[in-house]
């Protein structure tokens, strides 16, 4: 039904490749807590296991996060989505798309995969209730063709979660 998006990706540039290799090396030396990198030969696509923080609604639960890097990373933001099943969150749609400003308009070349993961974990930890967004059904219906979340015009209205 709702399969993961598979956009046509270009090969990484020399700068992006160098940057990602260094980030991966740093990740292996000191990974952020609650995250586990699934080893694979594809440097352009990272699959990361996320474990809910203790004392939160998602404590003990594990979700999978997919990070796809563009050709001109880090000048362009990576595409970050949750694989099925997606966690029940007011800002995470059932197709795995995440409504987080730093993944779109507020992206900065100084950010890294680690900082993005920490922001997502913070978003999960501050969730008031396990529920879907109000416009979840309509949004998922519109993205049936495998549309990328970067093509959506997001409206970031919630600063608390």
């Amino acid at each position: 039904m709702t399969s993961s998006s598979s956009p046509s990706r270009k090969a990484l540039s020399k700068i992006a490749c160098n940057r990602l290799q260094k980030e991966l090396a740093e990740w292996q030396v000191s990974p952020p807590s609650g995250f586990k990198y699934r080893v694979s030969d594809n440097l352009q696509r990272w699959v990361i296991e996320v474990t809910g923080a203790a004392g939160t609604l998602y404590a003990g639960e594990t979700y999978q996060l997919q990070v796809d890097f563009p050709e001109h990373y880090p000048m362009e933001a990576p595409q970050v989505i949750f694989l099925n099943p997606a966690p029940m969150h007011p800002h995470i749609y059932s197709n795995g798309h995440i409504c987080l400003d730093i993944l779109y308009d507020s992206w900065s070349p100084a950010m890294t995969v680690s900082s993005v993961c920490i922001s997502i974990l913070s978003m999960l930890s501050s969730s008031p209730a396990k529920q879907r967004p109000q416009d979840n059904d309509r949004y998922v219906r519109n993205c049936r063709n495998g549309r990328s979340p970067k093509e959506t015009r997001w409206w970031f209205h919630d600063d608390k979660v």
Binding site: I15, N18, R19, P74, M75
Partner: peptide
């Protein structure tokens, strides 16, 4: 002091 560029790691 920083010795490499934080963007391209050069």
């Amino acid at each position: 002091t920083p010795l490499t560029c934080p963007i391209c790691c050069e």
